[in-house]
Design a protein around this nucleic acid. Structure first.
Lengths: 177, 177
DNA sequence: ATAAATGTAAAACGAACGTTTTACTTTTGT
DNA sequence: ACAAAAGTAAAACGTTCGTTTTACATTTAT
């Protein structure tokens, strides 16, 4: 793997496991197996690194949820949790740690959530049709369910995703009736 | 207000608004309007302060959700959000910032979530009855909805709570049918 | 072949952090 | 009244932080 990818991959893992502020540049350089000089050449600094890690994760996450049905979406979330663990939404965690003091990071978080919402809307539309009167409502409800399963999975594991999936199925069936 | 309460109240606000690691002892002493010597006498240190803030919030949160119905619960969540804003679950944020490196904080977080789950179970039981076959399932689903509305409210505000409330009502109606 | 680009190792920078200490002052219970 | 308790202000402690720099080695493209 090239230098940049090794940096972003190892940094994402550390940020996710320990938090952003609790992860030092020393830990980041050691995990990426490169000198701090090289790290700064590539990332510019810690804030730059956080931004690039979030952007990379945004891309990866959107690819993961680029599926064809709500069922597949929850299945993808379960696989993600199995392989990467469940420590909550990394974007909201970044927002919470910087307290919105870093507008560039807030922008990344908000645009990620907008893209996420758009994809859920796409899948719900594909399920109940574009003209269903409850399209917006149902989309908002399923988005909350996914957000909730991400949070609850921290302390409940995969069961939280199962519960959210079941709830989503019930809501969809009810709307389709 | 006495010294201890002033400390815990101002610290909770700062931790919530800026994050735990991003809040310095200097900021905490200034906000509490006391010398660092007094702060350390009362809290023991930063970790001790975090623990006491979380314990106080646990008490306050459980009192807030000590209501008689699921509808009242969502109404209480809305009022809380209106008065205090929405920056995500402070317990999960604390867990995420320490990366489970502080077992005492992990314990507080987990026991808070257990108490939260118990209260949701109590309210669901009061709604559909103690012998309903879907009691556990429905409780898990509503818990995920509340957790999700807390997270989504960060970027959607009160609308996220409205969506979760509507979804919970639909699920309850479906289970009662 | 060689110059530019890219890398390493390690020391050093000032600033900020959590914490403790020193020297006094004020409040409070008996 | 007065000792104990609880407070203040401010300096100082050693550590750690993010970042830059120095001095040198390796890779790579023309």
């Amino acid at each position: 793997m090239d230098t940049k990818n090794k940096l972003l991959t190892s940094a994402e893992r550390l940020f996710d496991q320990q938090g952003f502020n609790a992860t030092s540049m020393d830990q980041l350089t050691e995990a990426a197996q490169m000198s701090s000089r090289t790290l700064y050449k590539h990332a510019g600094g810690k804030t730059g690194l956080v931004k690039q890690v979030l952007s990379a994760r945004d891309k990866r996450f959107l690819q993961m949820i680029d599926v064809q049905s709500i069922d597949d979406l929850f299945e993808a979330l379960k696989t993600w949790t199995r392989t990467e663990g469940a420590r909550g939404c990394l974007f909201l965690r970044a927002y919470g740690e910087t307290g919105s003091n870093t507008p560039e990071i807030t922008d990344i978080v908000l645009s990620h959530k907008a893209a996420f919402h758009a994809q859920v809307a796409r899948l719900v539309t594909g399920t109940i049709g574009p003209d269903h009167p409850n399209l917006g409502t149902l989309t908002a409800q399923i988005l909350v369910l996914i957000e909730g399963s991400t949070a609850a999975a921290i302390y409940q594991g995969e069961d939280a995703i199962t519960a959210a999936h079941q709830a989503a199925s019930t809501l969809i069936a009810q709307a389709s009736a």
